[in-house]
């Protein structure tokens, strides 16, 4: 008979091997690449240097990181507020509808990301559906420029990642014991106080998970800023893309992507740690 732990290890082995070969090793290679120099004509000159990481502190690149964080942060905030409200409504709907409502919320994932982003171009452009709709209602004059703005980028990010928040918040909301809220109201708390002191604290893990998902996916995104921002906004993802595909400075691109990966890992670990701690408290 196999011991419990040996069997667990055997079952884990294929997944671990897969992750090591196709995730850990490539990441280490990228990390190593960050310490070399770009050859004059692109390619890699294998001379050791810290230059690429030093360059990250350059106000230009630091500014792009901060700007990306601001855009991703705004998108996260909006997605969490809208997504939480939607999840709250779904969790409060009659049981038999909930499956259908969740299905509708994730429906957009069944179509291609690029196509969903292009759909926004069709909607928002100056001669687009929104403008045509306004014209039909009798609006005359120069339509506002909605596309190729930072707002359009944020709208695109929120739209694409909202389902993550809905799913992440729905799970704890649906498990919430309704008797707790009743007890809170019986003890004299208003609706807002009940929400703030009873409902929200118990579903915070879901909010955190959803927020981290949106932030991490947004800060590294390069398609949405390129298409909806009209290339007028550089986010870190665009910068990495440019280093690998147009500037041919792979070492600097590697250094940039390492910072991005580090930010993601810190956030994901903090979220995992927070969740584990929350669970420990509840069980303990």
């Amino acid at each position: 008979m196999l011991s419990q732990s040996l069997r667990a290890r055997l079952l884990m082995a294929p997944a671990l091997l897969w992750l090591t070969a196709f995730m850990v090793v490539p990441c280490l290679l990228i990390l190593a690449l960050g310490f070399f120099r770009r050859g004059i004509y692109g390619g890699v000159d294998y001379t050791f240097t810290f230059e690429n990481f030093r360059l990250l502190a350059d106000p230009l690149y630091l500014g792009i990181f901060l700007h990306s964080a601001r855009v991703a942060g705004t998108a996260t905030l909006i997605a969490v507020v809208v997504g939480y409200a939607a999840a709250y409504a779904i969790a409060g709907a009659p049981r038999r509808w909930q499956g259908m409502l969740l299905f509708l919320a994730v429906l957009p994932f069944w179509s291609n990301y690029l196509i969903r982003t292009y759909a926004w171009i069709v909607l928002l452009n100056r001669e687009g559906l929104i403008t045509q709709g306004l014209r039909m209602l009798g609006y005359e004059g120069e339509p506002p420029s909605m596309l190729y703005t930072e707002g359009a980028v944020i709208v695109g990010l929120v739209y694409n990642y909202l389902p993550f928040v809905i799913l992440a918040c729905y799970a704890p909301l649906s498990r919430l014991n309704p008797e707790l809220a009743e007890a809170s109201r019986d003890l004299g708390a208003g609706a807002f106080t009940t929400f703030r002191r009873v409902v929200l604290p118990q579903t915070l893990a879901g909010v955190a998970a959803g927020a981290v998902f949106v932030f991490v996916l947004s800060i590294g995104n390069f398609i949405t800023p390129a298409l909806l921002g009209g290339g007028k906004f550089q986010m870190v993802g665009n910068l990495v893309y440019a280093q690998f595909l147009t500037a041919n400075d792979w070492p600097f691109g590697a250094a940039l992507s390492m910072v991005l990966i580090a930010i993601m890992m810190v956030l994901l670990m903090a979220q995992a740690w927070g969740t584990a701690k929350g669970m420990g408290e509840r069980n303990g």
Partner: peptide, 19 residues
């Protein structure tokens, strides 16, 4: 343009990143 390509790329990156 040889080495000047670096200056070109930097200029374009800065143009696109400018607010």
């Amino acid at each position: 343009v040889g080495e000047a390509m670096r200056a070109y790329t930097k200029a374009v990156t800065e143009i696109k990143a400018a607010q």
